[in-house]
């Protein structure tokens, strides 16, 4: 029983981190109707931006997270402009495939600059807190809170500001939004910036918890897609629910499935989601 509780706690913590890039994926999908798979590389870009800020420049973790948000967001916008936007006329599939290629290019740029070595951020290693036999790591709690804060901030931006409303309007109907005076292209850029910025934040959170290497994004990206698809492509609350469900499923599955197969949970979730809720749990498209 204690073990189940421990897995629940771990699952919620891991799920909150997964939800951050899943939201990023979904906000881009909602506004541009495009699956931008280069999100994996932008997680890595964020992790290295955080590494640069934290280790090379000596900034504290929160500033490293901010730097990662800005740099991944900017890298997302620039790479979208150069590699993906010219292809939009050829349809969503063409763009999605191009984004896979873009992912490889970005990941290799990261490799070229930083090399293949595994690096760690400069944060003190702290022992877990133990409550009634349940282990909770201080770093994990910090990461959990940052993830929640990032999600609340994004959610508030979308819900309570003019620009957030405008972005949701473009997601609903870009033509009508254009008639109403909103530049859909500008909102698309902003969505990519925010979405990939979220990926960057996730990159630093993962780096803080684990370590940085160029494949850091590829290691989690399947779970991120699973969360996005399960929650409903294009849905922000869906991404949160999807992230938590995938986080929990990956942890709890270890009770019944050998751990070597726990990566398959992501696949299984995608397949199940497509069979049972083709539009995702909270999807409306």
């Amino acid at each position: 029983m204690l073990q189940v509780f421990q897995l629940l706690v771990n699952g919620v913590m891991a799920g909150a981190i997964l939800a951050v890039p899943a939201i990023g994926f979904n906000i881009v999908f909602a506004v541009l109707q495009i699956s931008n798979f280069s999100i994996a590389a932008l997680i890595a870009v964020g992790a290295y931006a955080g590494y640069t800020a934290n280790v090379l420049l000596g900034l504290p973790p929160l500033l490293a997270i901010l730097a990662a948000f800005l740099i991944s967001g900017a890298a997302g916008v620039a790479s979208d402009r150069l590699a993906l936007r010219p292809l939009r006329g050829y349809g969503a599939i063409a763009v999605a495939i191009a984004s896979l290629a873009l992912n490889m290019v970005l990941e290799n740029i990261v490799r070229f600059i930083f090399g293949n070595d595994v690096r760690s951020l400069d944060v003190p290693m702290m022992r877990d807190w133990i409550f009634e036999g349940i282990h909770v790591g201080p770093q994990a709690v910090f990461n959990f809170l940052v993830a929640i804060a990032a999600m609340v901030a994004l959610f508030s931006l979308l819900s309570f500001t003019t620009v957030g409303r405008a972005m949701r309007a473009v997601a609903d109907n870009p033509t009508l939004a254009n008639i109403k005076g909103i530049d859909p292209e500008k909102m698309a850029r902003l969505a990519v910036f925010l979405g990939m910025g979220m990926a960057g934040i996730a990159g630093v959170l993962l780096a803080l918890d684990t370590a940085v290497d160029p494949t850091i994004g590829m290691r989690v990206v399947l779970s991120v897609f699973a969360a996005a698809v399960l929650g409903g492509l294009g849905s922000i609350p869906g991404a949160v629910v999807g992230g938590l469900l995938i986080g929990l499923a990956e942890q709890l599955s270890t009770l019944v499935v050998p751990v070597a197969y726990s990566s398959a949970i992501g696949f299984a979730a995608i397949i199940l989601a497509l069979l049972l809720f083709p539009r995702g749990i909270l999807g409306d498209r």
Partner: peptide, 22 residues
């Protein structure tokens, strides 16, 4: 427009605010 002339996932209040975006 004849069709798709409101934003379905926005509230009525929000639709009106977008109407006044300019």
């Amino acid at each position: 427009p004849q069709e798709a002339n409101v934003f379905p996932s926005l509230t009525i209040q929000e639709n009106l605010e977008i109407g006044g975006y300019l």
